[in-house]
């Protein structure tokens, strides 16, 4: 119902080399990839990066259809930026609508931004699609660990993320149950204007918050009863270990980065600014 089309944050279970990678390597590769994607300023760079992304997608066994479906929520933003670029870039005109002029340069610039967004979304969704939430938070915790000296509560942040992810389905189920209970008392969530509909949510939200707080209390108590006292001195059941494939993948990204920088210097931007 609500989740249709949104694949960001969803996990696609499968056994593939990409799934088997160390989550830290995957997170770092994604960060480097995103930076390089914004360093690249022409279609040659995108060809290289697109090839790399395609390779990763093929290796991950995630159906391409699923990734394409994930683009749906950003279609509007993509169309919007492309239109803006089409009309707001100066240069020789293609056609005119009123006082707005569409330009060739704008068309190319718009396409360029569109392609960049597609690669960005596809590659980053691959991270969450191939990494379970638990692995993801474990990896994130490890990456943030060096910053604990600066006062970043790495373990606590990761634990909060894990708990939040764990309770999303529970809360959805609870919301549905309370909604039905109120509907049985004649509540109406569907008709009326904005104000009336917002007001009709009170009988849903109050019990939902009450129970969420109660759950949080119970969970904290249960964690303390099992001697949880934060990250200090805590060991892990699943140890994260980098393997050969992680280093190979990381090396590949570094090579890609170098290539993109070379291409950037050699060919220059897609639309040369005057």
């Amino acid at each position: 119902m609500m989740s249709s089309g949104v694949i960001m944050g969803q996990y696609y279970p499968a056994s593939s080399p990409v799934h088997a990678m160390d989550p830290r390597a995957k997170i770092l590769i994604s960060v480097v990839f995103m930076v390089v994607l914004f360093v690249g300023n022409n279609f040659y760079a995108f060809a290289i990066m697109g090839a790399f992304a395609g390779l990763a997608i093929a290796a991950s066994k995630v159906p391409v259809r699923l990734l394409i479906r994930g683009l749906r929520p950003i279609l509007f933003i993509m169309a919007f930026t492309m239109v803006l670029h089409l009309f707001l870039t100066p240069g020789p005109a293609i056609f005119k609508i009123g006082s707005f002029t569409a330009t060739w340069a704008g068309l190319i610039q718009g396409l360029f931004i569109g392609v960049r967004l597609v690669i960005l979304i596809m590659f980053t969704s691959l991270l969450t699609l191939t990494t379970s939430p638990i692995e993801l938070t474990d990896g994130l915790e490890d990456i943030l660990k060096p910053f604990t000296r600066l006062g970043v509560p790495a373990h606590e942040l990761a634990m909060m993320m894990t708990i939040a992810l764990r309770f999303i389905p529970t809360l959805l189920e609870e919301a549905e149950r309370i909604m039905k209970a109120q509907m049985a008392r004649g509540a109406d969530f569907e008709s009326g204007n904005m104000v009336k509909r917002a007001k009709s949510l009170v009988p849903l939200l109050v019990p939902l918050f009450v129970s969420a707080f109660r759950r949080a209390d119970d969970l904290a108590m249960a964690m303390e009863a099992r001697c949880y006292r934060g990250g200090e001195g805590r060991t892990r059941m699943r140890q994260l270990r980098m393997a050969a494939r992680d280093f190979v993948a990381f090396g590949l990204v570094i090579v890609i980065a170098a290539l993109v920088i070379v291409v950037r210097i050699r060919f220059g931007p897609v639309v040369s600014r005057v």
């Binding site: 149950r177 109120q182 049985a184 008392r185 004649g186 009988p203 019990p207 009450v210």
Partner: peptide, 24 residues
């Protein structure tokens, strides 16, 4: 009446909460 029906209570007073149904 749902199971654990007390979880549906949301108003400030008992009177207001019981009144929710009849008011609807």
């Amino acid at each position: 009446v749902f199971q654990y029906a007390e979880q549906q209570v949301f108003e400030e007073t008992v009177r207001q909460d019981i009144a929710f149904g009849p008011r609807n």
